[in-house]
Every structure is written in C-alpha cells, then in structure tokens.
C-alpha cells in the first residue's frame, strides 16, 4: 500500500472538511470536490496493489482489481452531477440575495424572538 496515496487521502480529506465548514456555498462546493477525490483515492487504495489492465485472458494474478475501479467510476459520475447542481443552487441563491451564504433556520429564529418578547 502506497504511503504517498494515504497521505494524499489524508490531505484531501482535511482540506475538504475545512472548506465544508465555511458559510459560503462556493467554498463548500470546493470542499466536496476535494472530499470526492479523497473517497475515490480511498476506493483505489482499498483494491490492493497495482497490476496489469484487467482484460480477459491476462490471468487472475497479474491484473489489478477491477471492482473498486468500477465503483470509483460510478462515484465520480455522481459527484460530477451533484457539483453542477450545487453550482446552480449557489447561482439561484445569488439571484435572491447577492451572496451565497448559508442562512440560519428562519422559523427557528422567529420562534426564539417571539419567546424573548413574551418573556420581557
């Protein structure tokens, strides 16, 4: 198992988590991009060592494990689509308020202020 790949997974995950905790949706999107790459690399590492291309007739011992690669491919397609959806969401948000910040639960805040008013 390659130590470089493991370090790369760790770095991408750390960076991704940091970006996701931001308030701005565009940073969150970048964070998900990094996390997605980390997950795909992790899948690749989980498949074991490198080997020849998994073609019929290559012999089971010589070839790389094709299953995690198939899984990674599916995961990449899904995360690509969702990144686009998030970008569209950020765009729509900007149409409304001029920024792309994640807001608090408005109804929650309304109930809280109502409570304060009743108390005082």
């Amino acid at each position: 198992m390659s130590i470089v790949l493991l370090l790369a997974i760790g770095g991408l995950t750390g960076g991704g988590f940091y970006l996701i905790t931001a308030r701005s949706l565009s940073r969150i999107i970048l964070g998900f991009g990094l996390l997605g790459h980390a997950a795909v690399l992790a899948l690749l590492v989980s498949g074991g060592g490198p080997g020849a291309a998994p073609l019929v007739g290559n012999g089971a011992d010589a070839i790389a494990n094709p299953i995690p690669q198939a899984l990674a491919l599916t995961a990449i397609v899904i995360s690509f689509g969702l990144t686009l959806f998030l970008l569209a969401l950020a765009q729509r948000r900007q149409d409304f308020s001029g920024d792309d910040l994640v807001e608090d639960d408005l109804e929650d805040r309304r109930i809280a202020t109502q409570h304060e008013r009743n108390g005082s």
């Binding site: 995950t13 996701i20 949706l25 969150i28 998900f32 996390l35 997605g36 980390a38 997950a39 795909v40 992790a42 899948l43 590492v45 989980s46 498949g47 299953i67 995690p68 899984l71 995961a75 899904i78 995360s79 969702l82 959806f85 998030l86 969401l89 729509r92 948000r93 409304f96 994640v102 807001e103 639960d105 408005l106």
Partner: peptide, 27 residues
C-alpha cells in the same frame, strides 16, 4: 433555496462518508 442548501449539503456530506465507508469496508 435557503433550506435546500442545508438539506443538500448535509445529505451530500453523508453520501461522501458513505463512499469513504465503502472503501474502508472493501479494504
């Protein structure tokens, strides 16, 4: 759009964790 952002981000995050979990289980 406002609440959708929270919803999408939370669920996308758990999906990403799911994917990492799959890698762990497979390994």
């Amino acid at each position: 759009i406002r609440s959708g952002m929270t919803y999408v981000v939370m669920n996308l995050f758990s999906s990403t964790l799911f994917l990492l979990g799959l890698a762990i289980v497979y390994a």
